[in-house]
Amino acid sequence: MDAEAQENFRDFVESRSSALLKTAVLLSGGDRHAGEDLLQNALIKAAGRWHRIEEPEAYVRQILYRQQVSRWRLKWPRRELSVPEPRENPTRHTTDDEPGAADLRIVIRAALARLTARQRTVLVLRYFEDLPEADVAHLLGCSIGTVRSTTHRSLARLRELAPELAALGPADAEQQPSHDYSPVEVRP
């Protein structure tokens, strides 16, 4: 990488690393250090091909997503994360806010951290990045059906992990019947 490319790379990292780190931390289930590792590895890969990359952000994001769901990542030991404890009876709430919304977000956060990397990645892409199913399928290199079924199963798993969510209505994804039975990762 010549001096000009390095400067260009620095500018990119300086301007976009904050947004990229947010995604990386979410993909890592809220683990800040794991998110930093993930982002740093993705940037190292991007730096190696800097001359050939036309859209750096899209490229780095694709590495983040794929790296996260690859088997290699699963070999890393999993850390216990500390997440805020919700109050008792999270659905009962007395403020003017949506009933128990803050507590439920905490419950969801803890449950997200316990999903498999693949399940979490699909939810981050669908609900944080707001990408349509077709784009998620393209990014992860799988079929639209797999994205749909993984989303469906991930939401079902969240409900299993957090019974407090029982009162919530079904998501659109849950209302569509899933006909795709592609294998998904299962973590014991």
């Binding site: 995604t23 439920l104 939401l155």
Partner: peptide
């Protein structure tokens, strides 16, 4: 509220808490 809205809010809240690198 639907579960997908809650997932969306929770992820955005968590993202907003992240300090800059």
């Amino acid at each position: 509220m639907n579960i997908d809205q809650l997932v969306r809010d929770s992820l955005r809240e968590q993202a907003a808490e992240q300090p800059t690198p």
